[in-house]
Amino acid sequence: MEAKAKSEEGEVGLGLGYNSGSVKKARLQSTLAALLEDPVLSDVPKKPTLADVDTLISLELGSAMKISIVKMDGTAFDVAVLNTATVKDLKLAINKKINEMEQSKMGHRQISWRHVWANVCLAHHNEKLIDERAALQDFGIRNNSQVHFVHCVASRETRKHSRRRKHRFFHGLSKRSSYPTDAKS
């Protein structure tokens, strides 16, 4: 009996019951969930990464900017990117934000961003943001700027096929031209 009491005392003394890893993790998750419900922290994502937190801190310090993205239906949402961000960085932030919004509304849903960016591009003051390596500041994008989604068919300069060119490729593959022997019979 004395040995059992000592072993229980040892477990409590070592903190195995209260300070175990799973208890600490659960306590951290509940504290984080309570913090994220605070209206002051409404711009923090539900499952923030370290990069998300760094960007939001940079936004408060003035080394990042908040950009309003206007969708084609007229609705808008905000994303935060660093002041040195490129068009590619903005696209990645948009991808992440829309995926988070879709997850919260509809559960698991996969968006083909390759297809989206092949047919739609971003524009600021009627100037299309085509070059992904260009800095956003080169286009005059600053804190609280608006960027719009617009329909975009890629040109020859970008070395991507436009829709018409894709269709012209398949246009020549008809049954009559593919099988000359059928035309003779």
Rank of each mutant, 00 (worst) to 15 (best):
Glu11His: 13
Gln146Val: 04
Ser162Arg: 07
Asp52His: 01
Glu60Gly: 04
Arg165Val: 05
Lys184Trp: 09
Leu59His: 08
Ala51Leu: 07
Thr181Met: 14
Gly17Lys: 11
Thr49Gly: 03
Glu127Trp: 14
Met72Ser: 04
Gln29Trp: 14
Ala3Phe: 10
Lys6Pro: 02
Asn19Gly: 10
Gly10Ala: 15
Val70Leu: 09
Asp43Leu: 04
Ser42Cys: 08
Ile141Trp: 03
Glu132Ser: 03
Ser7Ala: 11
Gly17Trp: 12
Ala80Asn: 13
Met101Ile: 03
Leu36Trp: 12
Ile130Gln: 07
Thr86Val: 04
Lys4Asn: 09
Asn143Tyr: 05
Arg163Met: 07
Pro45Cys: 05
Val79Pro: 00
Met106Leu: 12
His167Leu: 10
Leu92Lys: 00
Arg176Val: 03
Ser174Tyr: 11
Pro39Ala: 08
Glu2Ile: 01
Ser22Asn: 15
Ile141Phe: 06
Lys25Gln: 10
Pro48Leu: 12
Val120Trp: 07
Asp131Val: 01
Val120Asn: 04
Gly62Phe: 06
Ser58Asn: 09
Glu100Ala: 02
Gln103Pro: 02
Cys152Tyr: 13
Arg164Cys: 05
Ser185Gly: 11
Ser174Ile: 05
His124Met: 04
Asp78Lys: 02
Glu8Phe: 00
Met65Phe: 05
Gly17Cys: 10
Gln110Tyr: 13
Leu28Val: 10
Arg164Leu: 07
Asn126Asp: 12
Lys175Val: 06
Lys4Leu: 06
Gln103Trp: 02
Lys128His: 07
Glu127Leu: 12
Gln110Phe: 15
Trp113Arg: 02
Leu122Phe: 02
Met101Asp: 01
Thr31Gln: 15
Ser104Val: 03
Ala93Lys: 00
Lys175Trp: 14
Ser185Ala: 12
Cys152Gln: 12
Thr55Ala: 09
Leu14Ile: 14
Lys88Asn: 09
Ala93Ser: 03
Ala85Thr: 01
Ser63Asn: 12
Leu122Ala: 02
Gly74Arg: 13
His161Val: 06
Glu37Trp: 13
Gln29Ile: 03
Asn95Gly: 02
Tyr179His: 09
His108Tyr: 15
Ala26Ser: 14
Cys152Leu: 12
Leu59Cys: 05
Asn143His: 06
Gly74Trp: 13
Ala76Arg: 12
Pro48Tyr: 14
Ser68Val: 03
His125Gly: 08
Glu37Met: 10
Ser185Phe: 15
Ile57His: 10
Val79Lys: 01
Lys25Arg: 13
Ala26Glu: 15
Arg168Glu: 11
Met72Asn: 07
Lys24Gly: 08
Arg156Lys: 06
Lys97Val: 00
Val87Leu: 01
Tyr179Cys: 04
Phe169Asn: 09
Ala3Lys: 09
Met65Cys: 06
Glu37Ser: 05
Gly74Asp: 08
Thr181Ile: 09
Met1Gln: 08
Glu8Ala: 01
Asp138Cys: 05
Glu2Gln: 10
Arg159Tyr: 11
Thr181Pro: 03
Val40Ala: 15
Asp131Trp: 08
Phe169Met: 07
Ser104Thr: 10
Asp131Ser: 04
Met1Cys: 07
Leu56His: 05
Ala34Tyr: 15
Val12Ile: 13
Leu59Lys: 07
Ala183Phe: 06
Leu28Glu: 13
Leu82Ile: 08
Leu16Tyr: 06
Thr86Asn: 04
Leu136Gln: 02
Glu37Pro: 02
